[in-house]
Design a binder for these strands. Structure first.
Lengths: 125, 125
DNA sequence: GGGTATGTACGAAGTGTTTCGTAATTAATA
DNA sequence: TATTAATTACGAAACACTTCGTACATACCC
C-alpha cells in the first residue's frame, strides 16, 4: 500500500530525518527547534503518528527509540509535484516549470543543468 | 493584504471560475459535478467563505449571485510553487524542475518551449 | 534505595476544512 | 392567489491536523 502524502508538520520532520539519518526524538526535536518553536512531546507524537501511517519506521531496541524515514525524499517530492500538477496546473508539467522558473532566480549553472536534462530527455525519446 | 493560499476544495472552485469566468452557484456546481460528487449547498458555502477570504468577489445584483475569481491563476500557481519550494525542496527551483520533468512526460514542443524560456532568462541576466 | 532526569504513551483541546441539512426568502407558475 | 421551484443564509456535524499537558515507566546518580 502506498504511503500517504505527508502533512506540513510531517514533512518538516521528514526533512530532518533525510538530512540527519536515523534519529531519536531528542535529536529530531533539537534539529527542528533551530527553525521553529515546537515542543518535545509534539515531535514525539508526530513521529508516533507517522509510524502508524508508515512514513517512518522505528527501532525500539534502546530506551530512546530511533526513527528513520520509510519514504524517500525523491518519492515524496514526486508525489507532491504530481498532486500539485493535478490540482493546480491541469496536469501540465510545462506550465509548472515555467512558473517555477519565474518564481525563483536560478543561477546560470542551474539553468545549464536543466538544459542538460532537457537534452537527455529528448535524446531518449 | 495578500490573499491566503486556497485550500484544496477552494482551488477546485477557482479552477472552474478561471475557466468559465463569472458564474452563479448553479453553474459552478454543475461544472464541478462532472469531476466529483458534491452538493449544491457545499459549493454555495465554499463560495461564501471564499468571498470572506477575498478569494472571489460576488455581484448580488441578481437573485442568483454571480461569483468571480478575485485572484489570478498565475498568482496562485506561483504562491503554491513558492510554498512547495520552501516546504519540500529546500528552496531549490532546479530540484523541483528536475523532478517535474521526471514525473510527467512532456512533448518535444513543450521541451522546446522550456528551453526557449531558459534562453530568455539567461539573456536577460 | 531515593530522588532526579529522560523517555514513552495517551488523551484532549484548539483550530481549520469540508460537508450538508434545514430554514427563510424570493421568483415562477398554474 | 396558492403552490412549486430556486436561491441564500446559517448552524453544526464530521474529520484531520497540530499542539501540548499529564501520567507513567525507566535509567542514572548520590
Amino acid at each position: 500500500m502506498p504511503s500517504p502524502l505527508p502533512t506540513e508538520a510531517e514533512l518538516s520532520i521528514l526533512q530532518v530525518l533525510w538530512q540527519r539519518g536515523p534519529s531519536t526524538v531528542r535529536e529530531a526535536h533539537q534539529a527542528l527547534e533551530t527553525s521553529r518553536a515546537v515542543g518535545y512531546t509534539t515531535v514525539l507524537k508526530l513521529l508516533q503518528i507517522m509510524t502508524e501511517k508508515g512514513l517512518v519506521t522505528r527501532d525500539t531496541a534502546q530506551r530512546a527509540h530511533v526513527y528513520e524515514a520509510a519514504v524517500g525524499e525523491d518519492a515524496v517530492q514526486q508525489h507532491l509535484i504530481h498532486t500539485l500538477l493535478d490540482q493546480a496546473f491541469g496536469g501540465s508539467a510545462k506550465k509548472l516549470i515555467l512558473q517555477a522558473l519565474s518564481v525563483k532566480e536560478s543561477t546560470a549553472e542551474e539553468l545549464d543543468e536543466i538544459r542538460a536534462l532537457l537534452d537527455e530527455i529528448e535524446r531518449r525519446s
